[in-house]
Amino acid sequence: MITHNCRVCGAVFESTRRDAMYCTPRCRKKAWAGAALIEPLPTLPGPVEREVRSILTSLHLDGADDVARAALRVAGAIDDPHTPASALAGLTKVLPETLAYLRETHGEEDL
């Protein structure tokens, strides 16, 4: 079960679906009728993503570099509790390789 917050009333509810937005059919109907929706809270970066962001900052990379964006996406997937365990092995292998490539191409070997 996955825990969600209802987009209409804000109530906490559990669902088997990742994309569930409403706690009851009543809230779903209210949303369909035009009720004001509560915006979901932004998620904070996890520990792996925070570490990758600090490394990218020390390399003076911003969001314009495609490889840096890919490293952030991989870090986010590692931190995501919904990432399947079968995918974590590959992700944890590719992230250090990606960061090593960024260090080589941007001149800081000692990080």
Rank of each mutant, 00 (worst) to 15 (best):
M1N: 11
I2K: 03
T3G: 08
T3E: 13
H4W: 08
H4K: 11
R7S: 10
R7Y: 05
R7D: 04
V8L: 09
C9T: 01
A11V: 15
A11H: 12
V12K: 10
V12G: 05
S15P: 02
R17S: 06
R17T: 02
R17N: 04
D19W: 06
D19Y: 10
A20Y: 07
A20H: 02
M21I: 09
T24K: 12
P25A: 10
P25S: 13
C27W: 02
C27I: 10
R28L: 12
K29P: 02
K29T: 12
K29Q: 12
K30H: 11
K30V: 11
K30Y: 06
A31E: 03
A31M: 09
A31H: 02
W32Y: 08
W32N: 08
A33F: 12
A33Q: 14
G34W: 05
G34E: 10
I38N: 04
E39C: 14
E39G: 03
E39F: 05
P40Y: 13
P40T: 04
L41P: 02
T43Y: 07
L44C: 09
L44Q: 15
L44I: 13
G46N: 02
P47Q: 12
E49K: 03
E51K: 03
E51V: 13
R53I: 14
R53Y: 06
S54P: 03
S54G: 10
I55L: 15
I55D: 12
L56A: 01
L56K: 00
T57Q: 15
T57R: 15
T57C: 04
S58N: 06
S58D: 14
S58A: 13
S58T: 15
S58P: 01
S58E: 11
H60N: 13
H60R: 15
L61V: 06
D62P: 03
D62T: 07
G63K: 09
G63L: 14
V67A: 07
V67H: 10
A68E: 04
R69M: 15
A70M: 12
A71H: 00
R73A: 11
V74I: 15
V74G: 01
A75V: 06
A75H: 01
A77W: 02
D80E: 13
D80Y: 02
P81W: 08
P81H: 10
P81T: 11
P81Y: 12
T83R: 01
T83Y: 05
A85W: 04
A85L: 13
S86D: 14
S86N: 07
S86M: 04
A87T: 04
A89L: 08
A89V: 14
G90M: 09
G90D: 10
T92W: 10
V94Q: 11
V94W: 09
T98Q: 03
L102I: 07
R103P: 01
E104T: 13
E109L: 12
E109G: 06
L111E: 11
